[in-house]
Amino acid sequence: MSTQSPASSKGKSKLQEPENLLILASSPHLHTTTSTQSIMWQVVLALLPATAMAIYYFRWPAVVIILTSVITAVLTEAIINRLKGETPTITDGSAVITGLLLALTLPPTFSIGGTILGAVVAIGIGKQLFGGLGYNIFNPALLGRAFLQASFPIGMTTWSVPATLAGSAVDGLSGATPLGLYKFEHALTGYADLFVGNVGGSLGETSALAILIGGIYLLIRRFADWRIPVSYLGGVIVIGGIFWAFSPDQFPDPVFHLLSGGLMLGAFFMATDMVTSPITRLATWIYGIGMALILVIIRLFGGLPEGVMYSILLMNAVTPLLNRYTRPKIFGEVQS
């Protein structure tokens, strides 16, 4: 993937359009000595606490959805590799991550058929159609989820209460998510339950604690850029906080914003996807704050209770632009 040959930069054409485009396409992890493969398996490791909590709270349905999603994602990847006549890329672990992340964003009651469809779309359309790992514009798992959200709007918003709460008097059979409760019934959920994840929601998003454990591991090992979760979460605290400060009766407080919904999972594991997040520092900050702004607007004023998915996908879309406009000055650049 060497995109800049020394000869071309010495040539008479100084930084013409095609060359710039190629710089954009280069992957950010080129300069590290760690292989893609080892990073990907480390991310899977970091996702294990959230996966374990998903299984603890939602029991068998969680196991079935997670296995279905991961196996389908890997199989899809292998089949497409084969069709394209490439060397199989399934051992690099990226398909496993996509399958696992997709499963963690699905409601516990979601159908097996729908899960299979989502995983096929995530890998087939979200990743391989763009050219495979490193070429996709959007986070594949979220693209698969967006497809499912548009396809099965009812199935994707039908929640069940965690097994730990079954039998207690919480909201009968169908458990609403804390954000749904807030949006439609204006009811707040306790912080302690939100933090450990003892609430309704998608499989892997309920436990802020489990996600933080994995997320901090990723940051310490520098497999994820710390600026992304910091700017995203920080942005949500500030922007959500401004609304709350003006009208505490109408809007939820920043801590609720932070702990509810898929924000933690999105901020640590999806927004930080190396392929679809910006390279330059300035772009990374803009990226995080942009996601925070979109998220708060959707949560407070949108028709949907949650907006993590669309906030990340929308900022994924502008990532190439952010990279382009924040590119550092290059020495020897000649004004044409």
């Binding site: 548009a150 396809s151 709007p153 199935g155």
Partner: peptide
């Protein structure tokens, strides 16, 4: 068969 709602919406047309 659970219909894929997305197919009768604009994204389905593009896809």
């Amino acid at each position: 068969f659970e219909p894929w709602m997305v197919m009768i919406l604009p994204p389905g047309a593009f896809l």
